Amino acid sequence: MRFNLKTIGLCLAAGAMLAACSEPPEIAAKAAKRPDVAPYMGADNGFMTKGWTPGNQASWTESVDKRNQNQSEYSRFKSSVKQQ
């Protein structure tokens, strides 16, 4: 049985497409979640929000609420109208 160049090319293309579908799952994102540590414990590094201290649940909750309010377009519009 003879294979021509077109058939070999199609087989290689099909093999490449199937190989692209078999990527291993990304486990780095799963490794970052630590169920044994509460979220408010956090890390003590330069990327923390000002006014929040690791281990203080009240300040963590306050900073998360403030961040959520700042992401709301309605709240941002209301505050900009008050300033004018």
Rank of each mutant, 00 (worst) to 15 (best):
M1A: 05
R2L: 09
R2P: 07
R2M: 09
F3I: 02
L5T: 00
K6Q: 12
K6E: 15
K6N: 11
T7Q: 10
I8N: 03
L10S: 08
L10Y: 04
A13T: 04
A14H: 03
A14F: 05
A14D: 01
G15Q: 05
A16M: 08
M17P: 05
A20Y: 06
C21R: 12
P24Q: 09
P25I: 11
E26L: 07
I27Q: 11
I27F: 04
A28T: 02
A28G: 09
A28P: 01
A28W: 02
A31R: 12
K33G: 14
V37R: 11
P39L: 12
P39I: 08
Y40R: 05
Y40C: 08
M41C: 08
G42K: 00
A43V: 02
A43I: 01
N45D: 15
F47D: 12
F47V: 06
M48L: 13
M48V: 08
M48W: 01
K50E: 15
G51M: 10
G51P: 11
P54S: 07
G55C: 03
N56P: 00
S59L: 06
S59F: 00
S59H: 01
W60Y: 13
W60Q: 02
W60M: 02
T61R: 14
T61M: 14
E62N: 03
E62H: 00
S63E: 10
S63Y: 03
V64R: 13
V64Y: 01
D65L: 12
N68W: 09
Q69S: 14
N70F: 03
N70R: 13
N70G: 12
S72P: 10
Y74H: 09
Y74F: 08
Y74T: 14
S75H: 05
R76Y: 03
F77P: 00
F77M: 12
F77I: 11
